[in-house]
Amino acid sequence: MIRIENVSLRHGSAEILHDISLTIPKGGITALIGPNGAGKSSLLSLIARLQPLQSGTISIDGFPVDTTPNRDLARIIAILRQDSIVASRLRVRELVGFSRFPHSRGRLTAEDRVVIDQSLQQFDLADLADRFIDTLSGGQRQRALVAMAFAQATDYLLLDEPLNNLDMYFARDLMRSLRRIADENGKTVVIVLHDINQAGAYADRIIAMKAGRIAADGSPAELLRPEILQAIFGFRMEVADMGGTPVVLHFR
């Protein structure tokens, strides 16, 4: 369980997050949606201890993120940032392999290799495994980064806009993979999404943020309604029902 209590964050005079309290239970997919600058990425990086907490507390499975040793947290929680740039010339297999560092401290065990191979298979990277990252397309690189986060094999997985650069095929593939690890392996996925229809189709719960506050919180059916969406995004959009899945017609 991720427990967030009274978390605020400021950069100078700008208030990024305003007194956020939130509990994300173990298991399932939680999607964070909201307009640009709502504070979604900041919240994610606070949970993943990439920024120091200014006020409030965050704990994961009872471990406070600001005092638990970094090494121990790396075995509980993995994060993929939105703006990850890999400038190093690493092969895909090497990159994915480094996600095992928290477990094996650099000496890959047989178990590590199994996890790495599975992750490469899962994201259709087996043929690209020996290619250098800088020779891949944007979408292939993104898949390699997601595969890396997967192979870290933590109970909690935080993904910041992982669908960036992915075409429809791989976007759907990634969301289905996330659904599978949530259902079959009991993983907890927290994902920032801009495509609210992906959130509607795959998430168990949607948390909408606006201007550093939580604007709405509920199941896709509860949250994806014209009046709620208008309050969050500032314009009116119709919502259709496709066999139980709400589909937001935000492009009309």
Binding site: N70, I79, V86, S88, F98, F101, P102
Partner: peptide, 20 residues
């Protein structure tokens, strides 16, 4: 060497993998 290589991935990736 492994830690140094991970550092080339940047601060956030390094912290995410448990490196000081």
């Amino acid at each position: 060497a492994d830690r140094l290589t991970i550092m080339t991935l940047g601060r956030d990736a390094s912290i995410g993998l448990g490196i000081d």
